[in-house]
Computed example of a mutant assay.
Amino acid sequence: MTTPSITVRGLLLDMDGTLVNSDAVVARIWRGWAAEKGLDPDEVLRVAHGRQGHLTMATVLPGRPMEVNYAENRALLAKETADTDGIVPVPGAPAFLAAVRDLPHALVTSASPGLATARMAAAGLRMPQLRVTSEDVSASKPDPEGFLKGAAELGFPAAECAVFEDSAAGIAAGLAAGMPVIGVGPRAPEHRPTLHVPDLEHLRLEPLADGRVRLTATAAGAA
């Protein structure tokens, strides 16, 4: 967190924790799963943020057959998709998405297409036209594949795209992709993003004449 602003051409947006506050649902689903397995719910939640479910299971239950993780994750994913109680937009997200409507941007999420659609709709947020979901990659965050694919879809080099993320896995993925990372929310600072804002109300977005976008953290904030 050494620069007050970032200037880029493309914007790559995580969903959960960055645009959508889904913490209540994530906690309900994963605490329940952890209790069934006799695991520490806090530790499971720490691992779960920003990752595909089967990788969370593989991390906290090492050595368990992956086919079991895949099967259990399908069941949990169905529960998560159906459970939208308590889902709200992150402060500033509606105005931010309105501000970037005509700028190059993409959603890059570890969620499935169905889960992403359900949560964006529950939060009342516009779904970006370009999306990279769990079905579009072979490796989940913290692997940089999703962000690199998003940059390629936008048509820009990785270094000319900014990642918006909240989780350890997501921030690590963005940095591994060679991209500046704007950390959003309370979980982000400890993972050393390039820039940090408490929410999207604390980010100023300035389209420049050459087509680039300047992103600046502010005290009061405005998208």
Rank of each mutant, 00 (worst) to 15 (best):
M1V: 12
P4N: 06
P4A: 08
I6M: 06
L12N: 03
M15L: 04
M15K: 06
D16Q: 00
L19T: 08
V26R: 12
V26F: 10
V26D: 06
W30F: 13
G32R: 03
L39S: 09
V47N: 08
A48W: 06
H49W: 15
G50E: 07
G50V: 08
G50H: 09
R51L: 14
H54Q: 10
P62Q: 08
G63Y: 12
R64D: 01
P65Q: 11
V68D: 14
N69K: 12
E72H: 12
N73Y: 05
N73A: 06
A75G: 03
A75V: 14
A75I: 07
L77F: 03
E80Y: 12
A82V: 08
A82S: 05
D83E: 11
T84H: 09
D85W: 05
D85N: 10
V88Y: 12
P91F: 15
A93Q: 02
P94V: 11
A95Y: 05
A98D: 15
R101L: 09
R101W: 07
L103V: 14
L103K: 10
H105W: 08
A106G: 13
L107K: 07
L107V: 09
S110P: 13
A118E: 02
R119L: 10
A122K: 11
A123N: 05
Q129P: 04
R131T: 15
V132D: 00
T133M: 03
T133N: 14
S134L: 01
D136P: 02
V137T: 11
V137D: 04
S138W: 06
A139F: 14
S140A: 15
K141H: 01
E145P: 05
G146W: 04
G146R: 00
G146H: 02
L148Y: 00
E153I: 06
E153F: 07
E153L: 13
L154D: 00
F156Y: 03
P157F: 00
A158Y: 00
F164E: 09
E165L: 13
D166S: 05
L175W: 01
G178S: 11
M179G: 01
P180C: 03
P180V: 01
P180T: 00
I182A: 07
G183M: 10
G185Q: 03
G185Y: 07
P186E: 10
R187D: 14
A188L: 12
E190N: 03
H196D: 05
P198N: 11
D199P: 05
E201P: 06
L205V: 11
L205F: 11
L205G: 05
P207R: 08
D210A: 04
G211S: 03
T216N: 03
T218A: 13
T218N: 11
A220S: 14
G221Q: 13
G221E: 13
